[in-house]
């Protein structure tokens, strides 16, 4: 566990300004704020449609103290790719000065794992020098909590409701980091705003990577998950400590768990505070728990093998 005071070493400058209209206790806005702190000023952001886009850019106001563009829902990676290639040639032709500028594409889980997957895959495959961050709050929160392919098994959403004939989401969560890894890109990592130092280290590494880097940040959503706004950080921690969302990185194909967990907490500790899991039967939870433990062991094996 890092020192309590270590967070003070993080940059004081803010690039995601106050006055944005995210819900109180928004884990995604917090993650965006932490990420932009680390990326600093020399960055250009291409944002997909979604909560963060809407809350940060109600014309004529903007929370972005760095250059920022929003085009559409499914194409953040492609827009970022265009910016990156545009900057590269303008610098090469001497039309603008040579300097390191991080090009960041950001999207929610829908803009990454569903509608944005094709553009993302294309950008990763073509080896654009961009950083793609998926802020995963596990459903379409901007439109009112509809399920995505990143919604975990069992979670109740407005389009995978817990009813008498169906207990929430019927399919397991899509493993986006694994899809990113499968593209053979140099850096993939998971992160959480509940672990700001781990997140900062990964953002730094990702930004320094030549070629595409992919970060997958679990973004706790009080409104969509049915928790009080002050429980955001706690839920982020429980997700990690229960093995639901392990924090790891994959550098050039080598796995490493960055926040080790000695003994996984029961998944019920993570589920219990959340309204979206409240309907689950103990047998279902046991089944989910089994699955989490298997995946955790698998990840540990991979991580041990390379370390």
């Amino acid at each position: 566990m890092p020192s309590l005071y270590a967070v003070k070493t993080l940059p004081s400058q803010e690039y995601f300004a106050s006055g944005h209209r995210a819900c109180p206790g928004c884990g995604e806005a917090l993650a965006v704020r932490q990420v932009q702190k680390i990326l600093g000023r020399n960055v250009i952001v291409a944002s997909a449609t979604g909560c963060m886009e809407i809350v940060s850019s109600p014309f004529p106001l903007s929370s972005w103290e760095v250059p920022w563009i929003h085009v559409a829902f499914e194409n953040a990676a492609a827009v970022a790719a265009g910016i990156e290639k545009g900057l590269e040639i303008l610098q090469r032709k001497g039309k603008i000065k040579k300097q390191k500028i991080t090009v960041l594409a950001m999207a929610g889980d829908g803009g990454t794992a569903d509608i944005g997957l094709q553009a993302l895959s294309g950008a990763l495959e073509r080896r654009h020098n961009i950083l793609f961050i998926c802020y995963d709050n596990e459903a379409y929160m901007n439109t009112g909590v509809q399920r995505s392919s990143s919604t975990p098994f069992g979670a109740s959403t407005t389009t995978s409701p817990a009813g008498t004939h169906q207990a929430g989401q019927l399919t397991p969560k899509k493993n986006m980091p694994a899809i990113a890894v499968a593209h053979g890109i140099p850096y993939v990592a998971t992160a959480s705003a509940s672990y700001p130092l781990d997140l900062a280290a990964k953002v730094r590494k990702a930004a320094a990577t030549r070629g595409p880097a992919y970060l997958h940040i679990l973004s706790v959503c009080p409104s969509g998950w049915g928790i009080p706004g002050d429980a955001t950080i706690k839920l982020g921690r429980l997700a990690v400590q229960s093995g639901v969302f392990p924090l790891y990185e994959v550098q050039n194909g080598k796995y490493k768990i960055t926040v080790p967990v000695q003994e996984l907490l029961p998944v019920q500790a993570y589920f219990q505070p959340q309204r979206r899991f409240r309907h689950l039967h103990p047998e279902t939870i046991e089944q989910i728990s089994q699955d989490i433990r298997e995946k955790w062991q698998e990840l540990k094996k991979r991580s041990d093998k390379t370390n």
Partner: peptide
């Protein structure tokens, strides 16, 4: 021709890339 030629994965991305690059001044 000294230019970036990007053979993208769809027309949607073709125009998206152009939007990005044009916005960057290219």
């Amino acid at each position: 021709l000294d230019a970036q030629f990007i053979p993208v994965e769809s027309e949607h991305s073709a125009l998206s890339l152009c939007i990005g690059s044009q916005a960057a001044g290219a």
